[in-house]
Write a protein that binds this DNA or RNA. Sequence first.
DNA 1: GCCATTAATCGTAATTCTACGATACGACTG
DNA 2: CAGTCGTATCGTAGAATTACGATTAATGGC
Lengths: 108, 108
Amino acid sequence: MDETCCAPLDGKVVREVERRDSDVELAVLSKALGHPARVRILRFVIAQESCICGDIVEHLPLAQSTVSQHLKMLKQAGLIRGTIDGPRVCYCVEPKALQRFRQLVSGL
Amino acid sequence: MDETCCAPLDGKVVREVERRDSDVELAVLSKALGHPARVRILRFVIAQESCICGDIVEHLPLAQSTVSQHLKMLKQAGLIRGTIDGPRVCYCVEPKALQRFRQLVSGL
DNA sequence: GCCATTAATCGTAATTCTACGATACGACTG
DNA sequence: CAGTCGTATCGTAGAATTACGATTAATGGC
């Protein structure tokens, strides 16, 4: 076995790595909300607490395909989740991700 | 005088406009932190509380011109301020903007 | 099974971002 | 006043984002 491979990291190194991870984590979440349409979508989803994609499209001055793209980005960042409900897709917020975002921003 | 011009808005309209403004406001701030390098720069500036541009460049694996670009974006979003200090530029955080960002994210 | 409905994906054009080296600019130093 | 140091800006190439219409895929009703 290679001693250096899995040797325990000291506290300083651990914190260093964690900090860099959280740089990326915060950047990913921030980027997801880096467009007004996505802020609006997220707020709408939170307000409605469960909402069908079509409702979001109606609520925004954007094409269905564009909204779908924005939803995809929010989903990839982990901020929302989409569950299939018959022929529709029901979107809802992912509270843990939102909480994590709050935590990271508060911790700045 | 045109009555419709400066007529008082009713509460509903005011809240509507405020909400849309804050969509953009949150998007602008989020976008500024939508890149790991900028998160790292902001954290560095906060940690050092006052720091020379050159120190930031040393601290990141990026060219000086790239760092300067990122600083410009953070400045344009209002998150940092740069004051000229002799031949150098001293960057520091803009606490009000940071506080506003926290407020907007908490309010989601 | 066929059709309508709903949402995702594809293709594409225009714009913006990211990174770099090179260059310009402003302010001290000798 | 010439030179140096620290930053900003310019030019540019490649990647990513944003928007749309057209198409595809999946589901439920007839």
